[in-house]
Amino acid sequence: MSQPIPAGTLAGKTALVTGSSRGIGADTVRYFAQAGANVVINFRNKAPRAEKLAAEVRGLGVEALVVGADLTDPASVQAMFDDVREKFGSLDILVLNASGGMEGGMAEDYALKLNRDAQVNVLESALPLLGEGSRVVFVTSHQAHFIRTTPTMDAYEGVALSKRAGEDALRELIPGLAERGIGFTVVSGDMIEGTITATLLERVNPGAIASRREEAGKLYNVAEFAAEVAQAAVDPVPADNTRLVGDVSSFRGQ
């Protein structure tokens, strides 16, 4: 893996990434650790994988805390931040990466509960630990970010609408965050090769990935997109609080 943030840049800092036992979240943790940050690895039900990642990043000389939490359960979220406070005392970077809604067997309102309500609750629960100069990053997709103006696949529409609702709810908190000196950036990417969501969409719509890749010219892989997410936590906050990764012309009707 290349290293987007120079080694030592985040020395002494602590970063928490939700949903970080695998995929984009795990690679984001690796980039932060490579840059010297202590990391909090959050998972819902993949403890062995989270522990394996923790062992890997500890090999870089940083501390790693592994915390299982169901983000849709406020008590579970509070317990996670209590653990963070006990271990590190404060938090410098919060990446809201965990999302879902395409899983089978979930209640009808699960996507909204996870992608909107839980995101807001996680951020609000983290606030006592986030000081001036700290950063919050929310990870989304172009299919969700532009859903109000550009239709997406039927199979993904409910998730896209719930993630856009989450983004809107978080954006309402920006003025209050700014008053506390906390920067907030939305990172939006296209379909990411190798993610669970892309795999599920491909299953429902065979050829969807290839067709999107052709239209966009390039689709980022997990490591490439994670590098953008990690970079968003250290780069200056964009004026519109939005970092669009890759080509978006087909979403803007250009």
Rank of each mutant, 00 (worst) to 15 (best):
E108K: 09
G194Q: 04
D190N: 15
T152M: 06
D70V: 04
E157K: 05
S141K: 09
K52H: 03
M102K: 02
L173G: 05
A144Q: 09
R180D: 12
K113Y: 03
G133I: 14
F88H: 02
L96P: 06
D168F: 03
L112R: 10
G166S: 04
R148I: 05
G189V: 01
R148Y: 05
V187Q: 09
V62C: 08
F138I: 06
M102T: 07
I192F: 07
M106Y: 02
A155T: 01
S134V: 14
T149I: 13
E193F: 01
G158L: 01
D70H: 13
A55H: 07
S90K: 15
A144K: 09
E157G: 01
K163I: 03
I192G: 00
K163A: 05
G176A: 12
R85T: 11
G68I: 04
D70R: 14
S125D: 03
E167T: 15
H142P: 09
R180M: 10
A178L: 03
S134F: 15
L114G: 08
D92A: 03
S90I: 02
G104M: 02
A75M: 08
Q119N: 12
A75N: 13
A54W: 11
I93A: 00
G158R: 02
I174L: 05
S125R: 04
D117P: 00
R58K: 02
E167H: 06
P128E: 10
L60G: 00
E172Q: 10
K87M: 06
V120F: 15
G176N: 11
D154K: 11
G189S: 02
M153V: 06
V77T: 14
A54G: 00
M153Q: 11
V186W: 10
I182Q: 09
E103H: 01
L96T: 06
D83K: 15
G158Y: 00
L96S: 11
P175C: 10
R164V: 01
A64R: 01
I147K: 11
R85C: 04
T149G: 08
T150G: 02
E63R: 12
I192C: 02
N121T: 14
K113P: 00
E132D: 14
G100H: 02
M102N: 03
S141L: 07
H145N: 09
S141Y: 09
V136K: 13
Y110G: 01
Y156F: 08
T185N: 04
E167K: 02
V120D: 07
S99N: 02
L173S: 05
R135V: 14
F138D: 13
L129E: 10
P151S: 03
A54I: 02
G59W: 13
Q143Y: 12
R135W: 09
D83T: 10
D109S: 08
N115C: 07
